[in-house]
Simulated scan of single mutants.
Amino acid sequence: MRLLTYRLKDTNDTYQVGLLKDEHIYPVEALKPYVTDEVVKSSITSDPELFYRQLPSLSALKIALEKVPETAGINKALIEFGPVVTRPSKIICVGVNYLDHVKEMGHDVPKLPVLFSKFPNALIGHNADIMGVAKSNQLDYEVELACVIGKTCTEVSESEALDYILGYTIANDISARDLQKRTPQWLQGKTLDKSTPVGPVIVTTDELNDASQLAIKSTINGEVRQISSTNQLIFDIPTLIAFISNLITLEPGDLILTGTPHGVGFAESPPRLLQSGDEVVCEIEGIGKLSNSVG
């Protein structure tokens, strides 16, 4: 299935959870009449914050989605995408996790995952404007595969780690390199308001059950800048989930951004960084395209 957060265009409505099928968006509330299990039905909510905390049975939602009439759907052209998870309790990011990116940035190959965090204020959705040029003149793009946690995850092993994933989405880990580099700690350059697109959808693991061999790329104004595969991760997804969950408890809706491949603008000579008006497209096989303009 393909989950998303949306609201109708040109409104100030709150975002709600929907499912994408055949270019139509189906509000999760519209599926309730087609769910027979009363416990599952009671757990369905359109509130993005609550939805992931009390995640209903995905198999029940999938069955209901096949039964709901097309008239209950909304044409995709009429909606505004929100960040796929609006307020996750944690956004954990992994730095220097592709070998070619380690080399281009002049880092040593890490012996353990390099972790940093973002905050929900940074998140935006598909087609939203990336903000930050007013605070930084060195905005950089970073296409990344992101995992969405589906159930509480504490001290899990690598062999069981994938069982805790709800699905996968695309993230653009926009980095303000001038702010990032002015201290040893990266946080200030990583979580500017409305700077990190995530979306357009979460592809659940029933549809995408192996994220270890996915093509990944980014383009700026149509020019390919990054192109690689998730098989180039230094620390793969089971390793990351096991490592992180042995430090902190992961909760439903938490995001893990797994790192970016080579080709970032800051590493070029001279640097080729984002400018106002640039169109950034991040693409991952099996998920789709995440498109945003720089505001």
Rank of each mutant, 00 (worst) to 15 (best):
A60Q: 07
G167H: 09
L50F: 13
I202H: 01
V198M: 05
R182I: 11
E251P: 03
G199L: 02
G150Q: 01
L233C: 01
A146G: 09
I74A: 07
T36R: 13
I79L: 07
E70N: 13
V201A: 08
G106W: 14
I124K: 06
V281K: 13
N97M: 05
L115R: 01
V94W: 03
I91G: 07
E223A: 14
A146W: 04
D254S: 08
A64H: 08
S175Y: 02
L20D: 02
V28K: 00
K21I: 08
F81M: 07
S218A: 15
V201Q: 07
G95P: 11
Y164G: 10
Y164R: 09
Y168A: 03
T260Y: 10
E158Y: 04
F51N: 09
V85N: 06
A72R: 13
T219S: 15
P252H: 13
N127G: 00
L214C: 04
S276T: 14
P184F: 03
F81L: 03
I248N: 04
L214E: 08
L139W: 09
Q138R: 12
E160C: 12
D278T: 05
E279T: 15
S291N: 09
L31T: 07
S228R: 02
I91Q: 01
S57D: 14
V156S: 00
D37T: 12
S218F: 00
G253Q: 05
I124F: 03
L255G: 00
H101T: 14
